[in-house]
Amino acid sequence: MTLHTSPSTASALAAGWDLHRNPHGRLVLRAADGTAHVGVTPVRAFPIAAPGEGLSLVGPDGHELAWVPRLEQLAPAVRALVEEELAAREFVPTITRIRSVSSFSTPSTWEVDTDRGATQLVLKGEEDIRRLEGRTKLLIAASDGLQFHVPDVTALDRASRKLLERFL
């Protein structure tokens, strides 16, 4: 496995490192020299476009401690810890159906079905719908800051696509 580290920790982590949870459930990055960094947070470089590529392990002060080019390069136990932490941090429900929209002007309240269940979201403005990778992938930011993902607009049912087209 290749692990690139920031200049300040390069010598400590190059020879070996360990990632584990402490008794309080926080991630701890232990360098080869025994230095422990408590409260490490994994952060994806490209969470939607390339979720398995480019992962930074960031300390509680916000500084990068280590860089992992590909998530698959991590040992299975370490990868499981990282994926568990990422799942808790990255809550981006996928919209599977748009049931109704309160108004075709913004702000508007949307009733949607997601992979996590039915919910409502308030769209503040049309600019809160961003296209990703071409024309079929969308990221929708609700007024409360929650992000919703539409992986393929063409996979939505006809009524959902028709409602969505009013805002694109």
Score class of each variant (00 low, 15 high):
D157L: 02
V58F: 06
P47F: 13
F104M: 11
G39K: 08
R26Y: 08
P93I: 12
T109A: 10
E90S: 03
D157K: 03
P151L: 09
A88V: 11
L163P: 00
I48T: 14
R30A: 14
A159N: 05
G52S: 11
G34T: 09
L168G: 11
L71C: 08
L65G: 07
L156W: 01
L27T: 02
H4K: 15
W67K: 09
A155V: 04
I129T: 03
H20W: 01
A12Q: 13
S11M: 14
H63Y: 07
K137Y: 06
G16R: 02
K137H: 13
P51R: 10
D144T: 02
D157F: 02
K137I: 08
E72Q: 13
G34M: 11
P47G: 15
T136Q: 10
R97W: 00
T109H: 04
E111G: 01
G54N: 11
R166K: 13
V58G: 07
W67Y: 15
L74N: 08
R30F: 06
L3V: 15
A12V: 09
L81Q: 03
L81A: 05
G34E: 06
L156I: 01
E111D: 08
R89S: 13
L121D: 00
T114D: 05
R158K: 11
A49P: 05
R79M: 09
R97T: 10
P60Y: 02
G34R: 04
E84N: 08
T109S: 09
I140Q: 03
L156C: 01
P23E: 13
A159G: 01
E111N: 07
K137C: 07
A66T: 02
F46E: 09
L19I: 13
P7V: 10
V92S: 03
A159F: 01
R116V: 12
E165A: 15
V40G: 06
R131P: 02
V122A: 06
A75Y: 00
P69M: 13
D115Y: 05
A14V: 12
F104S: 11
I98A: 04
L163D: 00
A15T: 14
T41A: 14
G25S: 06
F91M: 10
A142E: 03
R79A: 08
L81C: 07
E111M: 08
R89P: 00
R131W: 06
A141Q: 10
S105K: 15
I129S: 04
A159R: 11
L13V: 08
H63W: 07
L132K: 02
T119R: 11
P69W: 12
P7W: 11
D128C: 10
T5M: 11
T35N: 05
L138T: 00
V40N: 10
L132G: 00
I129V: 14
R70E: 15
E64H: 01
T94K: 14
R135T: 07
V38H: 06
R161M: 12
V82S: 09
L57G: 04
L27K: 06
G54M: 09
R161H: 00
P47M: 15
A66P: 02
D33H: 09
